[in-house]
């Protein structure tokens, strides 16, 4: 029994000493843990940036990949240093500083709500897919460039862009040509050609009798699906139809930006939109179109549905003609 008392006493003291040592060590560990957590947030921000932002803004934040998306890697310098003798946008009256307080707040607010009248959608939940912590992580990552983009990242960005860019082929069958327009215009970033929701609703079955899974046979603005009204919808975007509430069958979607289409682009895109059933399979008519094209002459492109989706790090960033102005004013 004396032994038990002795053991209890010794190990009580040992536990107290151990806890004391650990407690003293905490002043060292806590800052390290904080640094590790911010580092992890940067890593997650980098991952989310690649998934959601790199399609338009570029893997290295160099901008101009699609829709004239502005460069992001020098965003702090661009707004806080004076450009061409003009005072910096940050400090101007009614500028970022007065409205948002800091660059971080400005970027987070932009990510959260998007920019009206541009293809930049609202990313914050519930309109978009991102939680607040994801938006904060992406902002940390964008700010961490701090004007410096490593050549390696640029090189990778270019390499990925060229690898991913679909090669326009005048001899390709009409369905594949439509897919190229679909990819070049960036539709593929938000829409799947089946019943799956990405940022926007899946478009499988759009022109089929059953309609899409999200909004059936009527467009969100209530008009029926036909060639003229679909084109009007794409060109105007959802902002052109104020009655649209972005709420389709209980699902929230980001606003749809408007996209200018030439007659030629539209006619090619239409083939692609018409070619899919709701479940993502090709319609018999589309199969026939492909058959006929191949029957006439053996063309290479024959796998319009081989585009893998759901790969989180497939930036799918084709080079396309830069859109209007490459800077967005706050």
């Amino acid at each position: 029994m004396t032994r038990n008392i002795l053991i209890a006493t010794i190990f009580s003291l040992a536990t107290a000493i151990l806890l004391g040592i650990i407690f003293v060590g905490e002043s060292q560990r806590l800052p390290e843990a904080t640094a590790a957590i911010s580092a992890e947030q940067l890593e997650r921000g980098a991952r989310d940036y690649e998934q959601y932002c790199a399609t338009c803004h570029g893997l290295a934040g160099q901008g101009e990949v699609k829709f004239g998306a502005p460069a992001l890697n020098n965003i702090v310098q661009k707004y806080t240093l004076s450009q061409n003798g003009q005072p910096p946008a940050f400090d101007q009256p009614n500028g970022i500083k007065e409205k948002y307080g800091s660059m971080r707040n400005y970027i987070e607010a932009t990510l959260f709500s998007g920019i009206r009248g541009t293809p930049m959608p609202a990313w914050g939940q519930p309109q978009g897919p991102l939680r607040r912590d994801q938006i904060s992580n992406i902002t940390s990552y964008v700010l961490s460039w701090n004007g410096q983009v490593p050549d390696a990242a640029k090189l990778t960005a270019d390499r990925v862009a060229t690898e991913q860019a679909p090669t326009p082929d005048p001899d390709a069958n009409p369905v594949s040509q439509g897919q190229i327009v679909f990819t070049q215009k960036g539709c593929v970033g938000c829409h799947a050609m089946n019943d799956q929701k990405l940022v926007g609703p899946g478009l499988g079955g759009l022109f089929q009798p059953e309609g899409t899974a999200a909004f059936g046979t009527n467009l969100p603005n209530g008009k029926p699906v036909n060639e003229a009204d679909v084109r009007e919808w794409i060109q105007g975007g959802s902002a052109a139809f104020p009655e649209n509430n972005n709420d389709l069958q209980g699902q929230d979607y980001s606003p749809m930006p408007g996209f200018a289409l030439t007659d030629d682009e539209w006619s090619r895109l239409l083939v692609w939109l018409q070619a899919h059933n709701r479940d993502g399979t090709l319609t018999p008519e589309a199969e026939q179109i492909i058959q006929e094209a191949q029957g006439g002459e053996g063309t290479g492109e024959s796998q319009p549905t081989a585009q893998p989706t759901g790969q989180p790090n497939q930036p799918g960033a084709p080079n396309s003609p830069a859109g209007p102005g490459s800077t967005a004013t706050p």
Partner: peptide, 26 residues
């Protein structure tokens, strides 16, 4: 395989970002 006999290719890709503060020895 594709129409012209070349093998049809599937691609899987994934990245991991490694920050010095969360990976390096303290």
């Amino acid at each position: 395989s594709n129409q012209d006999g070349t093998p049809q290719i599937s691609t899987s890709q994934q990245s991991d970002f490694l920050h010095r503060d969360s990976h390096e020895d303290r």
